[in-house]
Amino acid sequence: MTSINEPRVVAGPVSGRLRGLARTGLIATLAAVAATTLAAALARAAGVDFEIPEGGETIPLSGFAVVTGFFSIVGVVIAGALLRWSARPAVRFVWTAVSLTAISLVPPVISGANTATITTLIGLHLIPASVMIPTLARSLRNRTD
């Protein structure tokens, strides 16, 4: 038996939108991982070595998939937080995501790798951004944006 004074949790419009955002984000993440890994494989086949001079290691294809998946999920979490706590989540998300993408371009440039590797790494940062940012921003849009 419930009393009038007991609080009830009611699934409101935000929780439904969060579920939709999570579903959309997961699908976009899978697309971003596939596109980035495919582009890296094609670049490797074209002769890009992905060798980072510091330590002399070569970035494996699985590394592109894992890092893309991780940071794409981070983007979904940021989008979810903005949906929950921002009056204008789509606008805030685009500004945040574009800023973080710009910051992510710095490490390839200062890595000391050859020009082909640097250029390809920059492109491989922009591929998942071009998938995730518009997809999540569309999912966050509401009548007030």
Rank of each mutant, 00 (worst) to 15 (best):
M1G: 15
T2A: 15
S3V: 14
I4R: 15
N5A: 15
E6F: 07
E6Y: 06
E6I: 12
E6P: 05
R8P: 02
V9Q: 12
V9N: 15
V10H: 14
V10W: 09
A11K: 14
G12H: 10
G12Y: 07
P13W: 06
G16M: 08
R17N: 08
R17P: 05
L18S: 12
L18P: 04
G20N: 07
L21R: 07
R23C: 13
T24A: 12
T24K: 02
T24R: 09
I27S: 10
A28K: 06
A28L: 10
L30P: 00
A32E: 05
V33M: 02
A35F: 01
T36C: 02
A39T: 08
A39Q: 04
A41W: 10
A41P: 04
L42W: 06
L42K: 09
A43I: 11
A45V: 09
A46L: 12
G47S: 14
G47N: 14
D49A: 14
F50T: 05
F50S: 02
F50V: 02
I52F: 03
I52A: 07
P53G: 10
P53V: 07
E54D: 12
G56E: 12
E57Y: 08
T58L: 07
L61A: 02
L61T: 05
L61S: 08
S62K: 11
S62M: 12
G63V: 08
A65Q: 04
G69A: 09
G69C: 00
F70S: 00
F70Y: 13
F70K: 01
S72F: 10
S72H: 00
V74N: 01
G75T: 07
V77I: 14
V77C: 04
V77N: 02
G80V: 14
L82D: 08
R84K: 14
R84V: 09
W85T: 14
R88A: 07
R88C: 07
R88I: 05
P89F: 08
P89V: 12
V91P: 03
V91H: 09
R92C: 06
F93M: 01
V94C: 04
T96G: 03
T96Y: 07
A97F: 09
L100Y: 09
T101A: 08
A102H: 09
A102Q: 13
I103R: 03
S104W: 08
P107Y: 05
V109H: 00
S111P: 10
S111L: 13
S111V: 08
A113D: 01
A113G: 04
N114Y: 10
N114A: 11
T119E: 11
L121H: 08
I122C: 11
L124V: 03
H125K: 05
L126I: 06
L126S: 04
I127G: 01
I127Y: 07
P128S: 02
P128Q: 01
I133P: 00
I133E: 00
P134T: 01
T135L: 05
L136W: 03
L136S: 04
A137C: 07
A137Q: 06
S139E: 13
L140C: 10
N142T: 14
N142L: 14
R143M: 12
D145G: 04
